[in-house]
């Protein structure tokens, strides 16, 4: 009984190794990329279009809309990163219906990797939006005293991201494995369906949190003048 697919190692040479996590990730990547490639090969710009194209359009515009609703002004800029996060996590949990499949998100290494990506992406987008100084100043908001707390929150939320996804995915697989040994009929199917649901929820949570973090990092500068303006008008009215 393996707690993580990292432990299933197919090939190893010193530091380099090929475990189930990496292999299944590659599999997912292939499915995603080849599927997209096949569907987007014959895109129609007319009123009539294929069902697959419709599906992809719904997914892409849905993600786009979600990002916009969170408060990011130019959603297409963040679409590649946030959309890929959602699609990868969602597909990873969706494929749990395939027997013998181990979701790569059930490995703490994968979720850590994704969390690190978010951890790096947030300051990158923030700096791109408001410059290095502007971004670093956001750690001093609302006062200088908050600086350590801001840094701690930055690290802890990354950790939380990684562990939350890992815990959920791993627990789903674990419960399924345990139930299979106790009640081999019906219950595993119900749990598997529940696992699909939690997988989708986790994918949504993971990507929406990443979006919120990025939005928080990029909004600092753009909201500040508005706040000042509001204060001014308030003082004037008084």
């Amino acid at each position: 009984m393996n707690l993580s697919p990292d432990n299933i190692i197919y090939w190893q040479m010193g530091f380099f190794k090929l475990n189930a996590t990496i292999v299944y990730t590659w599999g997912l990547m292939l499915v995603l990329v080849i599927g997209s490639k096949l569907i987007t090969r014959n895109l129609s710009t007319e009123q009539q279009r294929s069902r697959w194209q419709n599906l992809l359009e719904i997914i892409v515009t849905g993600i786009n809309q979600q990002i916009e609703e969170v408060g990011l002004k130019n959603p297409q800029k963040y679409l590649s990163f946030l959309g890929s996060l959602f699609l990868f996590v969602a597909m990873a949990s969706l494929f749990t219906v395939v027997p013998g499949y181990e979701p790569p998100t059930g490995s703490l290494s994968t979720t850590t990797a994704l969390a690190i990506c978010v951890f790096i992406a947030v300051p990158m987008f923030g700096i791109e939006q408001s410059g290095v100084g502007g971004y670093l100043r956001s750690y001093l908001q609302p006062t200088v005293i908050m600086l350590p707390f801001n840094i701690v929150s930055e690290i802890s939320r990354t950790l939380a991201l990684a562990v939350r996804l890992f815990g959920n995915m791993m627990s789903g697989t674990m419960i399924l494995a345990i139930l299979l040994t106790i009640t081999p009929f019906i219950f595993p199917i119900i749990m598997s369906a529940l696992g699909l649901l939690t997988g989708m929820v986790q994918a949504y949570i993971f990507s929406i949190l990443a979006t919120v973090y990025i939005a928080a990092a990029t909004r600092v500068r753009s909201t500040k003048p508005e706040g000042e303006a509001e204060n001014k008008t308030e003082s004037e009215s008084k």
Partner: peptide
């Protein structure tokens, strides 16, 4: 090692999806 590999994998996935999914769909 898996963490590093997955980071690289994810970045490649982002690039590939951007190339094959988001851009064509949005363009269409």
């Amino acid at each position: 090692f898996t963490v590093i590999a997955q980071v690289i994998n994810f970045l490649i996935l982002v690039w590939l999806l951007k190339r094959f999914l988001y851009r064509p769909i949005l363009d269409a």
